[in-house]
């Protein structure tokens, strides 16, 4: 069912990571991802895994919950690994049919798999521990300088947070309409591509009608509650850096320093 997609869905609990300023988490995630591509050798990955492990532990989100969310993108992971495995030129290891696996291929594929897994887990920790609203708040504040260039930062952030709020509602609605049309004999699963695309019409038309109706209702409700854009608006949860946020920044920098040292320099000495 559609509702089983848990990748990046907010996991409600209380932890240090949950309480961090979203800007710290956004920045931290970005730096972590970058760090994954800095090193060429395994000790760096070890450092990254260690760091990730500590963060997961601190976040109080069950590891099982994270892994389950990853199921949706396992396919992507396999594809990437396969590409690297078969298409990297180098010393031949095994060969069958038209495919050749090289020693270099194995190495890049393994590195890629590790990188991608950590990348996905790393970024899903951000979304798992931050409410989408908080996240958009963080983005809004981080991108505030862009307003100089007439980028409607507040509006974009508001649209994102509304979209996030309505995703589960529309998923449920899709499920319902689909069932209702199946009950009327609709067939979404068989036939060629064209036939399947045509079969989607009875699903998509009602879904769009419903989405527009909801959008209209919501706009009305927002106006009735005096919403008139970002001008003159105050914040219920303004973003102010706390002591823990500064400590978190320090930890991230420390991790970067360590991982770069371990990942590049130490290896060269050996």
């Amino acid at each position: 069912m559609l509702r089983d997609i848990t990748l990046g869905q907010y996991y409600q609990t209380d932890s240090v990571i949950h309480r961090l300023d979203p800007r710290v988490k956004l920045g931290g995630t970005l730096l972590f991802i970058l760090s994954l591509f800095f090193f060429q050798r395994y000790p760096g990955y070890l450092a990254a895994a260690l760091f990730l492990g500590i963060v997961i532990k601190l976040s109080h989100v069950p590891f099982r919950f994270m892994v389950r969310g990853m199921k949706a993108i396992v396919f992507l992971l396999i594809l990437t690994v396969a590409f690297n495995l078969f298409l990297t030129p180098g010393k031949e290891l095994v060969s069958f049919w038209k495919l050749t696996i090289t020693w270099e291929g194995v190495k890049t594929a393994a590195a890629m798999a590790v990188r991608l897994t950590m990348l996905i887990i790393g970024s899903s920790i951000m979304t798992l521990t931050t409410t989408p609203n908080n996240l958009t708040d963080g983005m809004e504040k981080m991108m505030r300088p862009l307003r100089v260039f007439k980028v409607p930062v507040h509006e974009v952030a508001m649209m994102m947070s509304i979209a996030l709020r309505f995703i589960p509602i529309l998923l449920e609605e899709t499920d319902k309409i689909m069932k209702a049309q199946i009950a009327r004999g609709a067939d979404f699963e068989s036939g060629n591509l064209l036939k399947r695309a045509k079969a989607m019409v009875p699903l998509l038309v009602p879904l769009f009608v419903s989405a527009f109706r909801r959008a209209n209702d919501l706009a009305l409700a927002m106006e009735a509650r005096c919403y008139r854009g970002g001008e003159g608006r105050t914040k219920m949860k303004p973003l102010v850096y706390q002591k823990r946020d500064r400590i978190a920044y320090l930890c991230i920098l420390l991790y970067l320093a360590v991982s770069i040292t371990v990942g590049r320099l130490v290896w060269m000495w050996i």
Partner: peptide
């Protein structure tokens, strides 16, 4: 087709 099911707010499936 033998057991017809009309969902809640069935007008939402008209297309």
């Amino acid at each position: 087709s033998r057991v017809g099911l009309v969902f809640q707010y069935p007008e939402h499936q008209l297309f």
